[in-house]
Design a binder for these strands. Structure first.
Lengths: 367, 367
DNA sequence: ATGAAAGCGCTAACAA
DNA sequence: TTGTTAGCGCTTTCAT
């Protein structure tokens, strides 16, 4: 890497002191027209640009924002980071990105690194908001930070989907469509804040609509073959008519597995996903889901950070129910109950015989 | 942001000079056991960490790699960046990410910025390899860089899919499945290197298999409603039996549009996509596509950069045909030709009447 | 209006 | 073995 021209080179070439060059270029002090001219010429000739490193050392500001997320292979984070990055760039900041792969140690290390690099602020998603070494570090160092996709602990700012409310909304949608017996498909839901919020919100929503408590289908790993698990699950809970999958990929996987089991979606089983990924609307049936706006959340987090840095008034967080919306899709269909005696009788035949299942439902359908 | 302890503070506390602290911490010179001890204690007490900014100024190295890609909303780039980032992190480097939104000005600006920040190397995808201001800049400044997803100009290194060969492979797959009349669906294909490569490779592949030259369906924008365009296209080219979409999203959109036109995929029309996104295998029909490995490419680009920086032997580029593989899927079906007289007669009924189309094909199918 | 010089945190050459 | 100091590129007093 060839040595770039420094301010000294410019000064020399322009025949003046470095201070003059600095003043001219930064418009931070007086300068005669001829000096300005000479400096500008020298700058052009040398194609001079300030070294941000020198600047940073002197100003103890780096115009860099750190961003720590689990993985941008997850499009939710990718989009959020993209949104955050754009806002930073517009404000003349660059973004240092570190992905932690859902690893707590990496998380702490990443934050340490970013502090060492003296980023002016950090946007981050942590594994556990209530127990994060990195977060403690940030607080003790008074580094501005803004949480992203974490449930905000009291008094803190987090740009996140209200998982609890969104999941409750799913329950209410199922209820509106006459589904009474539902299941929740989640991954690792006991160790992840977000998954737990979704399950609890869903369960509470079901309860408040007098639906049966959702049955839980927990998968260990997304690479698992879902089909046998789903089969066993449906055998065990034969009257389930709707499944809430904790994200869209798992919803798609569920549809696929159902198909392999000759269970038609939505005729025999309704599915609702979470996130609102783009492909959900490009497939058949389209995916009913909770649509979220990762870009907007990322952008918001950036705006919060920038306002903390320059002391301007922070952007307002969206109200809880603005962080998501239900998006209808072909994977959800209203259920026409066979009998309605007090809701005690299953709205769905309890036989697990697929043929029967299909036939019954076909009968139930409007046409 | 509270002021962190500096090396001076540590020296003071340990009762020694700054050089000693530096030597101890960097293990870069002699130090008595007791001095080492005193320093370590002071470091612990102050929770001292080096300021990378100070270090960078002095060493003119930042342990930072710049990464410039169009957009990480495109999962291909997101995955590549993730792969690149992981390799950097493992080597103790951080990554500055700038997305250009497919904008050439942004691209140049991004590169200038990264140079100002004195990144030690840059991984980048440019719009036009043969005419890039940013690339010129990098060359004149002798900044190590590695191209990603660009067709490598002679003598340069680029971690990319061989679009031309991959597209030719698609033609040969169509041929193996007895398709003779095909179409190419592309976006902005004349101004983008990659799209052009894919079209040309496909066209050449068709030619070499004595298929008719592919008909071109160019869309202006992914948000376009494809359905009417596809309808007009198929009306104009009634004997087309297979479409190669220039990426998987467009392939999915094509399937959806076909469905709206009562054209069954793959019965009436086979579709092959490009990229190999995850959802391609989760939907029905599964998507036949060119599978690529963005992570591996990103990781490779990082390794190249790192080797340029430390002067070690660079990783070997994968051979052209290792950069992709054809992945079969339900969206492609073999065609059973109606007549085979010298391949001059369409393998597909030329009527554009959908019903007829379906009926004809149903007759043709094995069962 | 301009320049000389101090100092940001660090490393490395040189002295002791 | 240890400390002093120059200097990396820049901004900012403080003289002039």
């Amino acid at each position: 890497m060839v040595q770039s021209a420094t301010i000294k080179d410019v000064a020399q070439r322009a025949g003046c002191g470095v201070a003059t060059v600095s003043r001219v270029l930064n418009q931070t002090g007086p300068a005669s027209a001829k000096m300005r001219e000479k400096v500008m010429v020298a700058v052009k000739e040398l194609d001079f640009h300030f070294s941000e490193v020198g600047r940073s050392l002197q100003s103890s500001t780096t115009r860099t924002i750190g961003c720590v997320v689990p993985s941008i292979e997850n499009p939710v984070y990718a989009d959020a980071v993209q949104g955050a990055q754009e806002v930073c760039l517009d404000a003349g900041y660059q973004m240092l990105l570190i992905c932690t792969n859902y690893n707590a140690e990496m998380e702490t290390h990443a934050i340490r690194t970013l502090i060492s690099k003296q980023v002016d602020g950090i946007i981050l998603t942590v594994g556990d908001v209530n127990n994060s070494e990195g977060l403690d570090l940030l607080r003790s160092r008074k580094v501005p930070y803004s949480l992203l996709y974490n449930t905000a602990p009291e008094g803190q700012i987090s740009w996140a989907v209200d998982d609890h409310a969104a999941a409750a909304k799913v329950a209410s949608v199922f209820h509106d469509n006459k589904h009474k017996h539902t299941g929740f498909l989640g991954l690792d839901f006991l160790s992840s804040d977000r998954a737990r919020q979704r399950f609890e919100g869903f369960a509470e929503g079901c309860a408040s609509h007098n639906m049966t408590p959702p049955a839980l289908l927990e998968v260990d790993d997304d690479s698992d073959d879902l089909t046998p698990r789903l089969e066993a699950f449906l055998k065990q809970h034969p009257n389930i008519t709707g499944i809430f999958a904790s994200n869209d990929y798992r919803a798609l996987a569920t549809i696929r597995s159902a198909r392999q089991l000759s269970i038609d979606v939505p005729r025999d089983l309704s599915i609702i996903g979470f996130d609102g990924i783009k492909v959900g609307q490009m497939i058949d049936p389209t995916l009913a889901t909770i649509a979220t706006e990762p870009r907007a959340l990322g952008a918001g987090a950036s705006k919060t950070i920038l306002s903390m840095i320059d002391g301007s008034t922070p952007p307002e967080l969206p109200s809880m129910d603005q962080t998501f919306s239900f998006r209808d899709g072909g994977s959800l269909t209203p259920l026409v109950a066979e009998s309605e005696d007090d809701g005690k009788v299953a709205a769905f035949p309890s036989s697990n015989d697929q043929t029967h299942r299909q036939v019954k439902i076909q009968q139930e359908r409007p046409q």
